[in-house]
């Protein structure tokens, strides 16, 4: 499969200095690394800053880091920026005491956060919290003025045995009940991408996002001024690239191909 040629007008005048990389579906699929991805990442690292960005509401950075490490990727825990990290940072910045509607595995990223007398509701994908009592508790807090924070707002996710509701519908239910709008933190929110770039002081027009989700990865990144590269692995389905306007800067077979393209054309 060939890379589809990007239109010339979309080439950048300034050189790329940072590349944000999605994890699941882009570097690996469950317990398998995408062939050639480990070496491709090492090649890319020598040229630019990298950061790994992912929408997760149930896996802490430690868990993600251990998985990637076991697949052979040379990645530091501090290089992983997730929607949970964004939520943690939001909670710290705004001095919020959250009611955390999260599963145990995700709680690790909120160690040390004060949760007594809460003034915000933080929602991730937490099946054990999506019951009537807990939803009512959150609802009453929101009516009393607490802030609603959605770690991300995905409608559903695909597991091996079918489709399952994501956190989005439950965030939406509370928005409707209280007539308020949630602060949403993960991809495709602009603030998420900008925060990921912050450490490198890298303006968005010198950054690239590589991912398999045309809307959350590529569309979101391009809306905040980055270049988006869509890889045809993971959740990619035929013609996904036509779902956004403007189209992805580049659609290519896999992560190694995207690295070759960046090194050859954008540096």
């Amino acid at each position: 499969m060939q890379c589809s040629a990007p239109s010339l007008r979309m080439f950048k005048s300034s050189k790329v200095c940072t590349v944000l990389i999605d994890l699941s579906g882009t570097l690996h699929i469950e317990d398998y690394a995408i062939p050639g991805a480990v070496n491709a990442l090492n090649r890319l690292r020598r040229k630019v800053n990298v950061k790994f960005v992912t929408n997760t509401t149930k896996e802490s950075r430690r868990v993600l880091h251990e998985r990637l490490h076991s697949l052979g990727f040379d990645i530091e825990k501090s290089e992983i920026f997730t929607s949970l990290s964004a939520a943690r940072s939001y909670v710290d910045t705004h001095k919020i005491r959250p009611l955390l509607m999260l599963e145990k595995e995700a709680m690790e990223d909120f160690e040390g956060v004060g949760t007594s007398d809460p003034n915000a509701v933080v929602i991730g994908l937490a099946p054990s919290c999506f019951n009537y009592s807990k939803m009512n508790e959150a609802f009453r807090m929101l009516l009393d003025g607490s802030t609603l924070i959605g770690i991300h707002k995905a409608r559903y996710l695909k597991k091996k045995d079918g489709l399952y509701l994501g956190p989005g519908p439950f965030v939406h239910a509370l928005e409707y009940a209280t007539g308020t709008q949630a602060v949403v933190l993960g991809k495709p929110e602009k603030a998420f991408f900008l925060e990921a770039l912050q450490e490198f002081s890298c303006p968005p027009d010198q950054a690239v996002m590589i991912g398999d989700d045309v809307i959350d990865d590529v569309g979101g990144a391009q809306k905040c001024g980055m270049l988006g590269i869509l890889v045809q692995t993971g959740k990619y389905r035929s013609k996904d690239e036509s779902k956004i306007q403007p189209a992805p800067h580049l659609t290519c077979p896999d992560f190694p191909a995207s690295v070759d393209y960046i090194i050859d054309n954008l540096l």
Binding site: Y132, R155, G168
Partner: peptide, 26 residues
């Protein structure tokens, strides 16, 4: 309906859960 009052406080009605399914399935 969004919510109703019971003797021990406000409770979510079926509207929010309907909205959740609307959102999930577009």
């Amino acid at each position: 309906g969004k919510y109703y009052l019971e003797t021990d406080g406000l409770k979510l009605d079926c509207g929010p859960f309907m909205k959740a399914l609307e959102y999930a399935c577009s």
